[in-house]
Design a protein around this nucleic acid. Structure first.
Ligand SMILES: [Mn+2]
Ligand SMILES: [Mn+2]
Ligand SMILES: [Mn+2]
Ligand SMILES: [Mn+2]
Lengths: 219, 219
DNA sequence: AATATTATTTAGACAAATCTAAATAAAATA
DNA sequence: TATTTTATTTAGATTTGTCTAAATAATATT
């Protein structure tokens, strides 16, 4: 199966958007890829031809088993490169997405298996997202909750659900990284903000906007 | 200057073929890129439009100063990735060219400067070719001679002029790498073959074909 | 110099990926 | 249910990179 960069980007987007959902809409894909719905329809016909998606007009799009397999390979490559950029080249987590967006399209089994080994076969990327193994298996970690819904008092930051530079830079400024331990001081019902504290530092408040996008696990 | 992958590949080929020569022919570029002369003519018009090459029909092609600057950046990226693949991921020198051929097109100043630093700012790649610095400067090393023309007895392998997997695998099999010390035992005028010896190993003979492509410096 | 050969360019076509504008289908609302 | 709104598809173009076949220019050979 020899895919173009454009086809790989579509497959990855469909995988991302499908998640729990049954099918993905033309519009959703167009928005995700910053392109036009008409272009998505064009590509849908090609990917259907290649048996990577199920698609009937007006009925939405979903990956076939083969399509999903390929999506997992692309996601694996993307996340491994993100690890490389952060762990080996010293990039911060808000800088790596765009670069990995290009590196992910270099297809070489050997390159990726060696890169993975070089990095110590990591199972999650700098944003806390799991890295599929060479067979496309994702290690089941305990399901994460967003900070605004967490019930426990003592929490550990385990991921972010929005990976925009804006959010990541904000978290950098507040000293919040993967693995940071947070204590919930107070929740304010009025605006759903939450006051938190990092060990040895003064407490501060996070808006609902922010706390929705911080994924945590209880300690 | 925002170039496509195809444009970058053309620029790099022209740079490689121009070397000492004044201009490069349409046919030479077509052969180098495994494409057709008609395609080269098409691309020549585009690159001339972008002021990256000088081109008048039937008069051959040469890089402008701007084109050369870009070529050196691409070469830098290519060779740094080759170093990464060999030094960090344990690839052998005959496996890295194709992969670097793709990695070289990921354009990020920061990525390349950090990669270079991570590798210890190397000045030559796994094939003995010099790596331009961020400003496109190539460190002047002593000019190398091919093994078939060397006059000294005691030599050190410093490069290969043909980078086909076939040659590199052959050299691997004979135990010849960058930095290998060779003693010339005998030259046979009949077929221009040369008998050489690596320290502590039995002597063996190399054909003219091979010795032409091994670049050496005297010790 | 005339002819043959080789190199290069042009003309015209095609596939991939995209777009805009218009048409049509599906869903929401009155 | 009829109408309006939204989502999706189609029709027709455009750009990029490529190709084949034919035309032309440059070079080499008799
Ligand atoms: Mn991508
Ligand atoms: Mn990530
Ligand atoms: Mn390349
Ligand atoms: Mn090289």
């Amino acid at each position: 199966m020899n895919l173009t960069v454009a086809e790989e980007n579509y497959i990855k987007s469909i995988y991302k958007l499908q998640d729990g959902n049954d099918v993905v809409s033309t519009n959703a894909i167009a928005y995700e890829l910053a392109t036009k719905p008409a272009s998505v329809t064009d590509m849908a016909k090609k990917l259907k031809e290649k048996k990577l998606i199920d698609y009937e007009k007006y009925q939405g799009i979903s990956l076939t088993a083969e399509g999903r397999k390929i999506a997992l390979q692309i996601v694996r490559r993307h996340r491994l490169w993100e690890c490389f950029l952060v762990d080996k080249l010293g990039f911060s987590w808000d800088e790596v997405h765009e670069i990995a967006e290009e590196l992910e399209h270099v297809r070489s089994e050997k390159l990726i298996s060696r890169l993975s080994a070089f990095l110590g076969d990591p199972t999650s990327d700098p944003h806390g997202d799991p890295i599929p193994d060479a067979q496309g298996r994702i290690s089941k970690s305990q399901p994460l909750v967003s900070l605004d819904k967490a019930t426990a008092r003592r929490l550990e930051v385990a991921g972010v659900s929005d990976q925009s530079s804006a959010l990541l830079e904000f978290l950098n400024a507040k000293g919040i990284h993967l693995g940071t331990h947070l204590d919930i001081i107070e929740r304010y019902e009025f605006d759903n903000s939450v006051e938190v504290k990092i060990r040895n530092q003064p407490a501060f408040t996070l808006s609902e906007q922010v706390s929705k996008n911080i994924m945590v696990k209880s300690l």
